[in-house]
């Protein structure tokens, strides 16, 4: 058990406000970089500048604004636990939801929707896709099977 009294939250070094303004400056620079990233036209560059920098920004905010670095270890533990559970959720769900085909099954409804949408985008002219993607235009022409995986022998 800790001998610390409550309310020790303020007892680490109090930074001058200029410290926070500097961090803010770094954050804004990073924001600009992530904004400019897609202009290079490389998918890898975009992904790195978009998500890599998002993690850096989040780290800066957590460390300098939320002062997690001087917080007790227990707080780290439960925050990390909830992040890890989200990774677990992604890992467990993505084999079913992120793919439309697998061993002895295929998600025909989803594949049909992708095919329909892509051809509609092509028809309406290239990258701008469905202009005014309103509900009226969206109605599929024929009703597709809504079942998830009717492929034979799906056990």
């Amino acid at each position: 058990m800790s001998d610390h009294a409550a309310g020790d939250h303020g007892h680490h070094d109090i930074h001058p406000p200029s410290h926070y303004v500097r961090i803010w400056g770094i954050l804004l620079t990073l924001l600009l970089v992530s904004f400019i990233g897609p202009w290079f036209g490389h998918q890898i560059v975009t992904l790195v500048t978009a998500f890599g920098i998002a993690f850096v920004k989040a780290y800066l905010v957590i460390k300098h604004f939320m002062h997690l670095d001087v917080e007790k270890p227990i707080v780290h533990y439960f925050l990390v636990t909830s992040v890890v559970f989200m990774v677990l959720l992604f890992a467990g769900v993505s084999p079913d939801v992120m793919h439309h085909e697998g061993t002895n099954w295929s998600n025909m409804a989803a594949e049909a929707e992708i095919a329909r949408a892509l051809s509609a985008q092509e028809a309406s002219g290239g990258e701008h896709g469905e202009h005014g993607a309103g509900a009226a235009e969206h109605k599929p022409a024929e009703h597709k099977p809504a079942e998830h995986k009717p492929a034979g022998g799906d056990h």
């Binding site: 989200m86 992604f90 939801v97 992708i114 949408a117 892509l118 985008q121 896709g129 469905e130 993607a133």
Partner: peptide, 19 residues
Amino acid sequence: CSYLMHRIAHPEWAAYAAH
């Protein structure tokens, strides 16, 4: 997580996101 999975699984969403 739900968004990310759908986004990766649906190539046609890139055009929607362009708006």
